[in-house]
């Protein structure tokens, strides 16, 4: 997939567990896992807003565009 979700990196940087994030944003563990593993087909603005609020970041920090070879674009 060309858009990669860098949720795992953000969690690591903030030393936050996935369970804790689930509780804070009010999303089920199953749904957040789908997002984290890159299986999600779309993300709602409300979800993105909640994630950015709790992780104190910008949407661009959570999403990354990669080319077909998997290299990140600047």
């Amino acid at each position: 997939m060309a858009i990669r979700v860098t949720l795992d990196r953000m969690l690591l940087e903030r030393r936050m567990s996935l369970t804790e994030l689930c509780d804070r944003v009010g999303i089920t563990m199953a749904n957040l896992s789908i997002l984290k593993t890159g299986k999600a087909k779309a993300i709602r603005f409300s979800t993105l807003e909640a994630l950015c609020r709790e992780l104190d970041c910008q949407p661009g920090d959570l999403l990354q565009f990669t080319d077909e070879d998997g290299e990140a674009e600047d």
């Binding site: 957040l32 997002l35 999600a40 087909k41 779309a42 993300i43 709602r44 979800t47």
Partner: peptide
């Protein structure tokens, strides 16, 4: 339906 299921 599949798309809806995978929209987080």
């Amino acid at each position: 339906r599949d798309e809806q299921k995978l929209t987080i």
